[in-house]
Simulated assay, not measured.
Amino acid sequence: MYDCEGCGPSRQGLFFGSGIGEAKWWCWRCQSADQKELIRYLDDHARGVLSRDADGVHWPYGPNIYVQMRADLLDWADRHDLKNGNTGCSSRLHWLDRGRCAKRECQGRPEFYDHTTTWLSRTTGKPALVFNQPYRQVDPAEVWDAISEYPSLTAEVGPESWYGAGTSGVYIWNDGNRSMAVRSSR
């Protein structure tokens, strides 16, 4: 439960504004017409990027309550030509490498896995990225060690992250499944 800027304690609403700790909570009832229009715009823009059902868009943790994260995630997904993917694979690396979990007992995840999401190329429809956004700086050697048994995977570590809040971006790519436009722009 959060304190709505308009009416007090509320369970349903969203944070508007930039930055965790600086954004203000507005319940559905107290949101302005502009805020409601922004939500509609972002939900419409999420079509083809995130899954949805009768209840609406399935925003990942963070963007599920922070409007600025929604906008940042959609801009990021557009830049990388990605849409969300789904897997039951614990490490997600088998899924990224083969398109499915190839091990019967897939256990464990690297320590840098935090705010982990899986992504498909919009162009190829195949697994393209496992994206992590940990709160700590990650040594690229740690990532390369985690993917060493998968020759089709590459890794990048950098500051770009749609989650924000001081997180870094850890990209684990299947370059063969990335869209050509994204590969050629690097």
Rank of each mutant, 00 (worst) to 15 (best):
W95M: 13
N86A: 14
D97K: 12
Y61S: 13
E149D: 12
V182N: 00
L50R: 10
G6Q: 06
A128R: 05
S90M: 08
C30T: 11
G6A: 08
V57H: 01
Q68Y: 14
Y2P: 01
W173T: 03
C30Q: 03
W28Y: 03
R11A: 15
D175A: 05
T87A: 04
V170T: 05
D53T: 07
E142V: 14
P9W: 02
N132D: 13
P151M: 15
P140I: 13
L42Y: 09
N86R: 12
W76D: 13
M1R: 08
R104T: 02
S148V: 06
R52S: 15
E142T: 10
W144N: 14
R29K: 04
A165V: 02
A71N: 13
L74C: 06
W28I: 10
Y2T: 10
A155R: 04
G62K: 03
Q137W: 04
T116S: 08
E142I: 07
S121N: 13
D145H: 10
I172W: 00
V67C: 06
T118L: 12
L42F: 03
W76E: 13
D139H: 13
C106D: 10
Q137T: 12
A46K: 00
Y171Q: 01
D145E: 15
W162A: 07
G8S: 06
A23F: 00
C4P: 08
S32Y: 00
R186C: 03
I172A: 02
I65E: 14
P134Q: 14
R11P: 06
V130Q: 01
C89H: 06
S32G: 00
H80I: 06
G19Y: 00
A155N: 00
E156K: 12
W59M: 11
E105G: 11
G6E: 11
N86D: 10
R92A: 14
L96Y: 01
T154E: 07
S18F: 09
A23K: 05
S121V: 02
R40D: 11
Y135R: 12
Y150H: 09
M69C: 13
A71H: 14
C89E: 00
G125C: 08
W119V: 09
T154C: 03
V143K: 01
P9M: 12
G62M: 03
P159H: 13
S91W: 06
H58Q: 09
W26S: 14
R98I: 09
T154A: 07
E5A: 15
L50Y: 09
E156Q: 08
C7H: 12
S179V: 07
G17A: 09
L74M: 09
L38Q: 11
A54W: 15
E105I: 11
A23Y: 05
V157H: 01
Y66H: 06
L96C: 10
N174K: 05
R29L: 03
F16M: 13
L14I: 09
H58C: 09
Y66W: 11
L50V: 08
S51M: 15
K36G: 00
W95G: 08
L96S: 12
D175K: 05
D43S: 15
D139S: 08
R70G: 02
